[in-house]
């Protein structure tokens, strides 16, 4: 564990908590993409199946359980409890355009052709693009609530911090996983436009709105 990975995990945890609290406190999931949340639930489920086969540490197991539970809680709030507030007219990104290529890529480019390894690889590739329906929704409506922006910033920071973690681990531990690194770079790049808007607008107290 190094400071970058810990900071990344904290940012990730913070993002998940911000989202749950936002929905719970406002009794509304307006502006949140249910499709992205569905993809994240798939990501955590397929990645953390190794909870049953591979023990790393208490920290690791607890975080995995929290991420899985939080993703299903978010889905429950969006698709059941506060279904009436779900803005599905603006949530129209076709997720099969992500799921099909990501599945194909996971079958073709992986470390080892085994079920768990392919599911892990699939989850890494899927995570890198899972935010696209949410970003698409923000661009379609042209704006996002500040709390949604904070969520997106925390979630984007997590993988950016992981990139620093991988640089650190490469130099100090000789650890290198090209699949995770390439997907992590793609994932972080997708947030760049949002990071720019967040820093230039939201941090100056303005609402995140896109030029018409």
């Amino acid at each position: 564990m190094n400071i970058f990975r810990l900071a990344g995990d904290i940012a990730h945890l913070l993002a998940v908590i911000i989202l749950l609290l936002k929905i719970w406190k406002s009794r509304s999931c307006a502006g949140i993409s249910g499709r992205s949340q569905l993809l994240f639930a798939i990501v955590y489920t397929t990645r953390y199946l190794d909870l049953l086969t591979n023990f790393v540490s208490i920290y690791n197991s607890v975080m995995k359980v929290v991420f899985i539970a939080a993703s299903y809680a978010t889905l429950y709030l969006m698709y059941m409890k506060f279904k009436a507030t779900y803005d599905h007219n603006h949530d129209t990104f076709r997720i099969e355009f992500l799921l099909i290529p990501v599945t194909a890529l996971a079958l073709l480019v992986n470390h080892e052709f085994s079920v768990l390894e392919i599911l892990w690889t699939f989850s890494i590739y899927l995570e890198s693009v899972a935010i696209l329906p949410q970003l698409f929704m923000v661009s379609k409506t042209g704006e996002a609530e500040s709390i949604t922006s904070h969520y997106l910033f925390a979630l984007g920071s997590y993988r950016a911090l992981y990139l620093l973690n991988w640089i650190y681990r490469y130099y100090f531990e000789g650890f290198f996983d090209p699949i995770a690194v390439v997907a992590g770079v793609v994932q972080t790049v997708l947030y760049c436009d949002f990071f720019y808007l967040y820093i230039t607008k939201v941090l100056k107290g303005k609402k995140l709105s896109l030029p018409a």
Binding site: D9, H12, N60, F67, E112, W120, N165, F175, F176, A180
Partner: peptide, 10 residues
């Protein structure tokens, strides 16, 4: 084949 790296990250 090369063994997959250890999965110790989240």
């Amino acid at each position: 084949p090369v063994k997959a790296p250890l999965k110790d990250e989240l």
